[in-house]
Amino acid sequence: MDTPSNDITAPEPVTPAQEALTTIALNTGDSRGALDTLADSEVLVPVPDDASEEDAYDPTAVALPVLEQPSGEQVVPVFTTEVEMADLLPFVSRYRVVPLGALASQWPDIDLSLTIDASSPHGLTLDSEDVRTLLARPQD
């Protein structure tokens, strides 16, 4: 009798944020509703390697990891799950969990894009204006 291999891992459950990204990517359903779901979701923000321990865990601020694309565009990568983050940035050892709408409401007023799950088929990149207008939520 053959014994099933334990090397097979169960697929990660799809999060509401990932469902929203898929809806937006496929342009199906209610895009506004999908954006609202996304804005209400928490994302993982990698802590930059050069951030001090104090800056990395300061509850009043988030150090943004900025990556420069070959085109010169600067983007901040965030992720819906640890698996998504590990697919693109396997070397990340520290990250913060942040409500995306809160992050967007404090987005810097510079030319800085946001990319969510960049390496996945449902990835989304927004320019700085779209981050603030489509995802920002008022702070309590």
Rank of each mutant, 00 (worst) to 15 (best):
T22I: 12
T22N: 15
I24A: 03
I24K: 07
I24P: 06
A25D: 10
A25G: 14
L26F: 10
L26D: 13
N27F: 06
T28W: 08
T28Y: 10
G29T: 05
G29M: 06
D30Q: 03
D30G: 03
S31Y: 00
S31L: 12
G33W: 04
G33M: 02
G33D: 03
G33E: 06
A34S: 05
L35P: 04
L35N: 07
D36T: 11
D36H: 07
D36R: 13
T37A: 04
T37G: 00
L38N: 07
L38H: 09
A39T: 00
A39K: 02
S41C: 02
S41M: 01
S41E: 01
S41G: 03
E42M: 13
V43T: 07
L44S: 04
V47E: 06
V47P: 07
P48H: 00
P48R: 00
D50A: 14
A51T: 00
S52F: 09
E53P: 02
E53N: 08
E53H: 06
E54I: 03
E54N: 01
D55I: 09
D55S: 14
T60G: 15
A61W: 01
A63E: 14
V66I: 14
E68H: 08
E68M: 13
P70T: 11
P70N: 12
S71P: 01
S71V: 01
S71C: 00
Q74Y: 04
V75E: 11
V75K: 12
V76K: 10
P77H: 02
V78E: 04
V78K: 09
F79Q: 04
F79I: 03
T80D: 10
T81P: 04
E82M: 12
V83R: 13
E84W: 00
M85V: 04
A86P: 01
A86D: 12
L88H: 12
L88K: 12
L89H: 08
L89I: 13
L89F: 11
L89M: 15
P90G: 03
P90W: 05
F91D: 06
F91V: 00
F91H: 05
V92Y: 03
S93E: 11
S93D: 06
S93M: 08
S93C: 00
R94K: 13
R94S: 10
Y95I: 01
Y95N: 09
Y95C: 10
R96T: 03
V97T: 12
V97K: 10
V97S: 12
P99W: 06
P99E: 05
P99Q: 07
L100T: 03
G101D: 04
A102Q: 15
A102F: 14
A102N: 14
A104T: 06
Q106A: 15
D109Q: 13
D109V: 11
I110K: 09
D111V: 11
D111S: 14
L112Y: 07
L112E: 07
L112A: 05
L112P: 02
L114F: 11
L114I: 08
